[in-house]
Write a protein that binds this DNA or RNA. Sequence first.
DNA 1: AGGCAGCCTTGACCTGGATCAAGGCGCGCC
DNA 2: GGCGCGCCTTGATCCAGGTCAAGGCTGCCT
Lengths: 227, 227
Amino acid sequence: MSADAKVLTELDRHYLFAALSDAQRDELLTHTHTREFKSGQLLFSQNDPAQAFFLLRRGDVKLYRVSAEGQEKIMRLIRPGMSFAESVMFMDTPRYPVHAEGVRAGTLLAIDSDAYLNILQASFATCRTVMAKMTQRIQAHWDEIESLTLQNSRYRVVHYLLGLVPEGTTGTTEITLPSRKSLIASQLAVTPETLSRTLHALGQEGLITVQDYAVSIPDIGALRRLQ
Amino acid sequence: MSADAKVLTELDRHYLFAALSDAQRDELLTHTHTREFKSGQLLFSQNDPAQAFFLLRRGDVKLYRVSAEGQEKIMRLIRPGMSFAESVMFMDTPRYPVHAEGVRAGTLLAIDSDAYLNILQASFATCRTVMAKMTQRIQAHWDEIESLTLQNSRYRVVHYLLGLVPEGTTGTTEITLPSRKSLIASQLAVTPETLSRTLHALGQEGLITVQDYAVSIPDIGALRRLQ
DNA sequence: AGGCAGCCTTGACCTGGATCAAGGCGCGCC
DNA sequence: GGCGCGCCTTGATCCAGGTCAAGGCTGCCT
């Protein structure tokens, strides 16, 4: 399979493109370019004017904010196949609402916002898909706010682990943490120390065993009951 | 002005309707009904199937969630002229993501989701407006998550107060709290006790004076510098 | 090999904000 | 008028989780 054909199938798997016709998609590709990035490289900063949104092909990217005191909070961790900054294109004066930085080197597609908007204009079905997706994002935010304000750190960690388990799994499983523990801690709005202690405590109680990035859960039901 | 004409001007002031033609709006009104509610009355519950979204005309409504332990967190406080649950209509299986309850008795318009969707289908301009609005909502959520996780309670209170001051104001101002302090506390994810103490402390420092619902700020600049 | 740089872990300590408890104040109602 | 009920305030206490500090482990570079 050629590199180009690979890009095409990757695109089609994504909701923003799946709804497009071949002609529309090809048109969009003429307004798209590939960009490589290294670990630690800043892709864009909060408040930068935005002309493009992105689809991650390889590597990991973090979207984060920094408080006045220099504390960093990771808002989302982007993994291959995920898009980001796509909702920004609808703003009147598009500016990125977060910083984006490479966590593990990779490549991404930068898609021109205006080109996509033009396509949307032609297809209500696509509009609907996009709006539905934005709604899901809003939903996810409600959920996150709830869990950050209503629940303690142990609950958040358990909730996060269960989120890594595929749907419908029961009994025993093995999961792999998708990133460094310190990044996960930041997403959960706890310090690395607290995450470490919480995982340790869950281990003591026989609910999980942690070995670097591998977490095995002998009884998912028991963990779910903590939620 | 007749009651009906009043409804019309109220509608037109809202982004979801401002973009509609008179004909479209009239069509929509045939799928709209008015509902009265009392203080404490439940309007809908989390996970209720949703066929309508709402525009508040009079009174106040809180959107909230309840944790497993029964703690309540107010996600948004809806005031007259604001719409809510409008993003839900784009979900595949529309369900309200929060509880809604009257805080002060009033009336609201319930607008049929399908009717609105049909209109959207006919107008890309309207689609764009709606998408832009949804983007703003997403933005606001990022901001809220940031302030809830990155900042302490004093900062959140100051931030909230400054949000009540009209844009561009300098020097001295007087603002009115939009609701009971306990509701504000819940929105800021602090206890009423903490809010009370924080306001008191800010008063001690000469930054504000609080008299029931009236807050006067002798020097907005000084308060902004705390942010 | 040795050294250094990132991460993670562990321990000791501290503190912001929650919780619990006790009034105070204003208001509607009998 | 006086009683009860909401809401707010104030004080005392507690604890989850943050901060600070000290290693340990791993992998990379020279």
